[in-house]
Amino acid sequence: MSVGDSDLEELGMTPRDVLFVTCSLRTGASGRTILAYLSADIQQRVAAEPIPDEAGPGVFRDPEEFLASLTEIRDTGYALGFQECMKGWNSCAAPVIHHDTIMGAVLLLKPCTVMPEAPASVIDATVRAGSALSALGGWTPEP
């Protein structure tokens, strides 16, 4: 995670809240992006999970709408989140895949006042970053 010029307090959440809500596959563009590339069985189980209390007002509450969004992510190669993960913040995410296995997602998160809609340049940059990380393949930790 790179916070950039922001302070986590600007999110209106504690650092623990931020980590909890962003690690749920049920909330946020990054969680949905990762889930879109997992099995239908896992997708169904996650769709049935309760939504974390810390989630933003834009979170997909209807399980069928949530599941339909996963198909759209696979079709387009990215996800957009509008105040989904947290109030006041919009996002764009793209998958990081290695040998047909989802490894994670690249996520750009900006205040909705700065990015009310994701411009094509943001979507393209996020998808390119996900593709570049996917192309790197596996990684070897430094000794």
Rank of each mutant, 00 (worst) to 15 (best):
L19I: 08
G31H: 07
L11K: 10
A29T: 00
T33L: 06
D17Y: 00
S6G: 11
T14W: 04
S30G: 09
M13Q: 08
A40Q: 13
D5A: 13
L8N: 02
L38F: 06
S39N: 15
P15G: 02
S6L: 11
V18S: 09
D17T: 09
E9W: 13
R26G: 00
S39I: 12
A40Y: 13
R16I: 09
C23M: 12
C23G: 12
G31M: 01
E9I: 14
G12A: 07
A40N: 15
S24W: 02
S6F: 09
L38Q: 09
T33G: 04
T14I: 06
R16W: 13
V3N: 07
G31W: 00
G28S: 03
S24T: 06
G31I: 05
R16Y: 09
I34F: 06
F20M: 14
L38E: 07
S2R: 14
S39Y: 06
I34M: 08
L8G: 01
E9G: 14
T27F: 02
S39Q: 05
D17L: 06
S6I: 11
R26T: 02
R26F: 05
V3W: 15
V21N: 01
P15W: 03
L11A: 13
R32K: 15
S6P: 08
C23P: 07
S6M: 12
G4N: 10
D17W: 03
E10D: 12
E9A: 15
S30V: 00
T14K: 07
Y37D: 04
L35Q: 05
Y37F: 10
A29P: 03
T27D: 03
A29M: 05
T22K: 04
R16N: 13
L11F: 15
T14Q: 08
F20H: 14
I34D: 04
A29K: 07
E10W: 10
A40L: 11
S39E: 12
L19H: 14
T27Y: 03
I34W: 07
A36I: 04
L25N: 01
V3I: 14
R26Y: 07
T22L: 09
S6H: 15
L38S: 08
V3M: 13
G4M: 07
R26L: 03
E10F: 11
Y37K: 00
R26A: 02
T22H: 13
F20D: 14
G4P: 05
S2W: 15
D17P: 06
L19Y: 07
G12P: 12
R32S: 06
E9R: 15
L19Q: 08
R32G: 07
Y37E: 03
G12E: 08
L8R: 07
L19S: 11
S30P: 10
L19F: 09
G12K: 08
Y37G: 00
R32Q: 14
S39T: 15
S2Q: 15
R32Y: 04
M13W: 09
